[in-house]
Design a protein around this nucleic acid. Sequence first.
DNA 1: GCAAGCCTGACC
DNA 2: GGTCAGGCTTGC
Length: 308
Amino acid sequence: MPELPEVETVLRGLKQRVIGRRLGVAQVSHRQIIVGSSVKFVREVSGRRILSARRKGKAIALELGPENANGDSGRRYLLVRLGMTGQLTVNAIAEPVEPHTHARLALEDGGEELRYVDARRFGRLRCLARHELDAVFGGLGPDAREISEEQFQEALLGRSGPLKSWLMNQQMLAGVGNIYADEALYLARLHPLTQAGGISAPDARRLLRALKRVLERAVALQGTSFRDYIDIEGRPGNFLPQLRVYQRTGKPCRRCRQPIERVIISGRSSHFCPNCQPRPRRLRLRRKIKNQRKTKRLAARKSIPQNK
DNA sequence: GCAAGCCTGACC
DNA sequence: GGTCAGGCTTGC
């Protein structure tokens, strides 16, 4: 499943393979994957040169130059969200088209095309103006690889609800999904149901370090492939054997041999070691989180000058 | 039936 | 405003 390391791997592939190339005619065979009008999408992206590629969290944005077959001006951004099973690949145009290929963007020079394949169609493509892209990226929290310890601690303040859900909340922290949330919690020895706003500063520091460590390792190994995820060249990631808890229910913990357990947290399965990640008792937590929330509000009011 | 990311809407 | 359940989707 594409989370930050998988998306980063795809981004690196895009940088190698498509930057500087001009898009020919785009074809969309399943309108549902396009946000907004697919006709407009095709008109907007066709003929533009791909200038750069960047990422925030799990979202990729390809910057498209102002040159357009229809004389439209101004840059556009092709925003790609892979969802669960989305794949971006560069193929020769003559190559057989895989099932579930929903969009094909011809690449000038070289007889190739960029293909979007997505069995479950949870992913989305959209073409945006600069201010729209800024709004989308602005709605995401800091990228998980880049967030500072101060930002991390600050974002945790006043949050009720399980730490696991918090890690996966893209408005708090961008890029973490189910796999790396479980893995980071295991490395940090924190139970997934721990109240987010209730953890100590040292625990938060340990969690952030664990998260960054697991993300860096996974990036180095091109991500995790269960079945669907492949990079732009069609290669799977190599992080699967490194997983400590994710999808290892009933198997022995690699630290203490206790069987890994699974619990559903806000509709998502969470895997953890009951011995290494003991359930914390929560003492007067409600009040603590409420107070944090109040302090945070006051601080925000102070730092943002009211312009009347 | 389960898995997942993301969006919507219900609830407190 | 924050939190969470539900729905989308299809291969296993």
